[in-house]
Simulated assay, not measured.
Amino acid sequence: MTLNIAKGSSSHSAYNLRSGYAETVERHVLAVLVDNEPGVLARVIGLFSGRGYNIESLTVAETDHQGHVSRITLVTSGTPQIIDQIEAQLGRIVQVREVHDLTMEGPAVERELALLKVAGTGEHRVEALRLADIFRAKVVDSTLQSFVFEITGTPEKVDAFADLMRPLGLQELARTGVAALSRGAAR
């Protein structure tokens, strides 16, 4: 006789057969403070590529010259279980001082800088300038055939501006990646 009990459906089981994690993929912003040494970034990237995790955005810069500390801000996606694994594995890298999941620690401020080259004449040129004004994008270079706009804001704002510029002649797009800090009192 076979029992038709769905896996993990009994609360009387001695074993917890249910996953404690949701199956939904979530976007997370991680701030990783590391020793500013050769090869540290390669180790962090290697952790992601070796396990098949994707990095959607990556910014790195030295934040403490005296202490030789750099901050890596990266955006990745995964189930809560995968994000926990990423944090744990990052924490095991010798040169990693701290790992913070800004998404889970509360409100955070995210910003990204982008440069967009838009070619256009006539009505397209006028429309590009009008949209740039609405999005508070600055013209940082101009020729008779094109503009280079600079825009700063959330990744969603940059995406929206780029989407509107595509039909107007968007030729090139360069993005810095997300820079983020948690809001409120210092840790």
Rank of each mutant, 00 (worst) to 15 (best):
L170Y: 07
A119T: 10
I151V: 15
A31C: 12
I134A: 12
E172V: 00
E37Y: 03
E87Y: 02
V34G: 05
S142P: 03
F149N: 09
E98C: 00
D35M: 08
A185L: 13
T143H: 02
M1E: 09
G120D: 04
R125E: 02
V44R: 05
E127V: 14
H124V: 02
L181N: 03
G120Q: 06
Q85E: 14
P80M: 14
Q145S: 14
L58I: 08
A31G: 08
G50D: 01
G46R: 04
A42I: 02
M104K: 15
A179N: 09
D133V: 02
A114H: 04
A108G: 01
G20L: 10
S77T: 09
A179T: 14
K138G: 05
Q89A: 15
V158C: 06
F149V: 11
F48C: 07
S70G: 15
A137L: 02
R43M: 11
V34R: 05
R43H: 10
E156D: 15
Y21E: 01
E87C: 14
H28F: 02
V40E: 13
N36C: 08
R187F: 15
R27E: 10
S77W: 04
T73E: 12
I82L: 05
A6V: 10
R175L: 11
R187Y: 15
H68Q: 14
S13H: 11
V60G: 09
A162G: 02
R166F: 11
G20P: 09
V118E: 10
V118M: 10
A162S: 12
A180V: 01
L173H: 01
L41C: 10
K7Y: 10
S49K: 02
R187T: 09
S10F: 07
H68D: 12
V158T: 13
V34M: 05
G169M: 06
L173E: 06
R92G: 02
V158E: 07
D64H: 12
T76F: 04
A180E: 00
L17G: 08
Y15G: 00
V32I: 14
T79V: 02
A88V: 07
V40L: 06
